[in-house]
Nucleic acid binder design. Structure first.
Length: 445
RNA sequence: GUGGCUAUAGCUCAGUUGGUUAGAGCAUCGGUUUGUGGUACCGAGGGUCGCGGGUUCGAGUCCCGUUAGCCACCCCA
């Protein structure tokens, strides 16, 4: 016998989990579409050269790669952004610009696993390519906000920064060459003490004065307007940095005007993002109740990525919801429903002699737009109801010989255990309509 | 990838200094109740103790390896 098992970091999804995931996917789809993003799809497997050297050394290491049967060097996509840049370069002429797309699909990363970190997980990306407009940047923030709010998360923070601010300050301090190692050290703030980080910076050859300025920058917090004022001072008259601060200021102001509540958007100068391709605004979002989970939705502007595949200038901006990590977080917070069925009505199989009637009833209920499961066996009613309750059906329909004789039906609310008698006199339309209104009423209890 | 912790029935866990047929609660199935689910009682099924080696007269219990999960680093979704 073969032991049934799954690879490290790869998971099965049981109905309760799969239903929760589909609910979030539906919300994401709805929100993306509400801004005009159109669906696309790309292959899971790409030529290796398409994927390597785009994110960072780290992402190259985590890439799943192998030779296919034809001896081609191939890789499983690491994210959805790089394949999209290839897609955009390849299809610009058919798309028209700017082009907005969403893409919800699995990606693969061969890294060590942890809660909310898997080797196969699904991302829900949306991007706008072919425009450098600040409106597209702002829209990214608005979509992320709408998305997390629509999912039903009350407490979250979207943390913004701009690569140009970092680059500007580093340039001003004469540290442009060591930006990666400096950023990596700064990233440890919060976990390590400022003194320890300062020591690490000194080890990298950063002068004490510069280190102090960097530490001040990275630890800035508070209302966005205040942080921006301080950043503005740190940036001085460095051109790039000023552009970054100005861009952030616009986004903060516009987001507020667009109705994003204060406190949900923060400026966090310590957010750098490990992906090399970001050039402007960068964003990470966190659950306030579970910050250790890491970012659940991240993105930014990447103005040169598609340039790797075409001479045409295709600036892009977009973000990605990590739905598997988000669900791991919601589950930990007890916010994932335990429903195991997509159906709304459980039709009890009471009497085998009425199978034809049950099937007609089920058909009528389905025709009225409801999902109904007819139990295949005439087991004890108690057992059937118990299973229905366990699966999370909101309601059961009980129709036995007595009910058939009287032309009635019992509509049972499975959460309140209350039964209502429906008079339908053999008219399937009457029955379906009554079930529909009872179901609506039950949903509001 | 590096380091640490964990691994016993579907789930949560007991299992005494290694010693005869590995236990409990919950869950599942059946019965008390051939027409009604979260209560009660009775009964049943289910584990080669993650897997593979080793030490020993004897290993769930000790050692090594391996696989998986979790935690930290790293990085991020």
């Amino acid at each position: 016998m073969i032991e049934p098992r799954t690879l490290k970091g790869f998971r099965d999804h049981l109905p309760a989990q799969a239903l929760a995931r589909e609910r979030v996917l539906e919300i994401a789809r709805r929100v993306y579409r509400s801004y005009g993003f159109a669906p696309i799809d790309t292959p899971a497997l790409e030529y290796l050269e398409i994927l390597t050297g785009k994110g960072s050394d780290e992402t190259d290491k985590q890439l799943y790669r192998f030779q296919d049967h034809g001896g081609r060097d191939v890789g499983l996509r690491f994210d959805l952004t790089v394949p999209f840049a290839r897609f955009a370069a390849q299809h610009v002429h058919e798309l028209g610009l700017p082009f907005k797309r969403y893409h919800m699909a699995a990606v693969w990363r061969g890294e060590n696993t942890q809660r909310g970190r898997y080797r196969e997980f699904m991302q829900c990306d949306f991007d706008t390519i072919g425009t450098a407009s600040p409106v597209a940047d702002l829209e990214m923030v608005l979509v992320v906000h709408d998305l997390l709010a629509a999912i039903g998360i009350e407490r979250f923070t979207i943390r913004l920064n701009d690569r140009r601010v970092l680059a500007g300050i580093l340039g001003r301090l004469g540290l442009a060459d060591q930006s990666m190692s400096v950023l990596r050290s700064l990233d440890k703030l919060g976990k390590a003490t400022p003194e320890a980080v300062a020591a690490e910076l000194a080890a990298h050859g950063v002068a004490a004065e510069a280190a102090a300025a960097l530490l001040e920058m990275a630890s800035l917090a508070g209302p966005p307007v205040d942080v921006l004022a301080r950043l503005s001072a740190l940036v001085g008259d460095e051109e790039q940095g000023r552009a970054g601060v100005a861009a952030l200021a616009v986004i903060v102001a516009r987001a507020r005007e667009a109705g994003v509540p204060d406190g949900r958007v923060a400026i966090d100068p310590s957010i750098a993002r490990g992906l090399d391709y970001y050039t402007g605004i960068v964003l990470e979002s966190f659950l306030d109740d579970l910050p250790a989970l890491g970012s659940i939705c991240s993105g930014g502007r990447y103005d040169n990525l598609a340039g790797l595949y075409t001479k045409q200038h295709l600036p892009g901006v977009g973000a990605s919801l990590g739905i598997d990590r988000l669900l791991a977080g919601l589950e930990e917070l007890g916010r994932v429903a335990t429903v195991e069925t997509p159906a709304e009505v459980f039709l009890v199989h009471f009497d085998e002699r009425h199978i034809a009637d049950y099937l007609r009833i089920a058909t009528a209920i389905r025709a009225a737009g409801m999902a109904v499961e007819f139990f295949p066996e005439a087991k004890k009613v108690g057992q059937q109801l118990k299973l229905a309750a366990k699966r999370g059906f909101p309601a059961a329909l009980v129709i036995g010989s007595d009910e058939f004789a009287a032309g009635t039906a019992q509509f049972k609310n499975l959460s309140t255990q209350q039964s209502v008698t429906i008079d339908w006199h053999g008219d399937l339309h009457v029955l379906a309509d009554a079930v529909h209104s009872q179901l609506e009423a039950a949903k509001h209890t």
